[in-house]
Design a protein around this nucleic acid. Structure first.
Lengths: 230, 230
DNA sequence: CGACGATTTGAATAGGATCAATGGGAGTGG
DNA sequence: CCACTCCCATTGATCCTATTCAAATCGTCG
């Protein structure tokens, strides 16, 4: 693993502020792996002893049941995933596939536990990270339970617009069918939802979306600090 | 706080095995409070510095958005709740109300952090508890995203049947309207879902449900170890 | 160019919500 | 003890949202 890659990992809030020797203990036995796009990394029923860090690329976490499949979340670099599984019983709860060529750092869960015992500051950060993962799922759960498909899309657009610099527009970071699955609808329904938003100033050109009437869109979306992420 | 009540709290996996003096540190400044039924304990936007332990009674966690309300989960004694909020930023993500007269122990979050630093075994248990909370929400999220209302009800009945001793029947632990909200449907739709399940051996008599054809019900429900809790 | 998959559109259907009305229990007060 | 009230639960009718199936269009890439 190159120094530059180490620095990328170290820049995560979870690892920043960690003593260098603790960081080295953690990386002992870790390995950085490169995967092509569209590869299934693991399945719900699998078992893991590694914390994963997506260093580069894009990963989709999804689940299957009753012959249906749904995207649960999208991971963008740099971020950890399956933290809870690695720290608890080791059972993945979700399947994962790469959406793009991706580099993933695998850290033995045992190392995490070892450093947590040595470094109570890191233990605290791990707790906070885990708590944030929890809140993330709670948000997603509220989103799908309390909003209609059009509302979910409208709020998604508002969040992306904010993240991409408040330029009254955004570029979709994933294919529309993946977005549809993440928002809990079919691709056909996503297409119709976009049409429904046209009167609210939403103009679609492939993956590029313009938002020409934010205030109307917000009136429809009713964004909530308790559901929508930053 | 009585010794008998302390023992109840101590019986939780999170606190069992904790050294007595650590347990006392944790309880310092804690208080046990009694609430009548139908009382809102806190709201989504509130802020907390306490871990809550439901010692007796029943509590519903719910959320509001767009003039809608939905039950997120039901807490039954003895269990902790809002662990993630207490340990992280202190923001509740959910509102809570009592469904019955309830006794709740409030433990200062600061105490938890203090004992975690002293006792790495407790820190590890806290992590595991938090990871299990996370997995619980992921299960709920998959449940609502991948199953229809009838399937969710069928699986709920199978889980309750198992929990209540595999006696081909069960007693609903909550009012049907609360169950409906928890399963993500209207009371009317729950009523119809029960009717849909009649051909599968489901007989309803108030809160008492008989399951007279488990194998057909399972065929419909397609229970999954990755969604349904134990 | 041709093939393949993603996206969009249309039509029909299903799942679920809403509105309205009725039945049924539990609790209250006379 | 009984009547009354209130809220929960059920049923019917209708509407709306979203899925399914089918077909056409668009884009990308070899």
């Amino acid at each position: 693993m190159r120094e530059s890659e180490k620095e990328i990992v170290r820049s995560l809030p979870l690892f920043s502020g960690m003593a260098p020797d603790h960081f080295e203990i953690m990386l002992k036995g870790s390995f950085l792996q490169k995967f092509p796009a569209t590869v299934v990394l693991f399945s719900e029923q699998d078992h893991t002893d590694f914390l994963h860090v997506l260093v580069d690329g894009q990963v989709e976490l999804f689940a299957n049941a009753n012959n249906r499949e749904g995207t649960m979340t999208l991971i963008k670099p740099v971020a950890t995933f399956v933290l809870a599984s690695a720290l608890a019983d080791g059972a993945y709860q979700l399947s994962a596939r790469t959406l793009q060529t991706s580099q993933i750092l695998m850290i033995p869960a045992e190392n995490i536990r070892e450093v947590m015992a040595l470094d109570s500051d890191f233990a605290q950060k791990t707790i906070v990270e885990l708590a944030e993962c929890y809140h993330g799922v709670v948000r997603a759960y509220k989103n799908i339970k309390l909003r209609t498909a059009v509302e979910r899309l409208a709020n998604y657009l508002l969040v992306q617009n904010r993240r991409q610099g408040d330029n009254d527009g955004l570029v979709l970071p994933v294919e529309k069918r993946t977005l549809a699955s993440m928002l809990g609808m079919t691709p056909e329904n996503l297409s119709r939802a976009f049409n429904t938003l046209k009167p609210y100033g939403v103009v679609i050109d492939g993956a590029e979306i313009s938002l020409n009437n934010l205030s109307d869109l917000e009136t429809l979306a009713k964004p909530s600090a308790h559901i929508d992420a930053n």
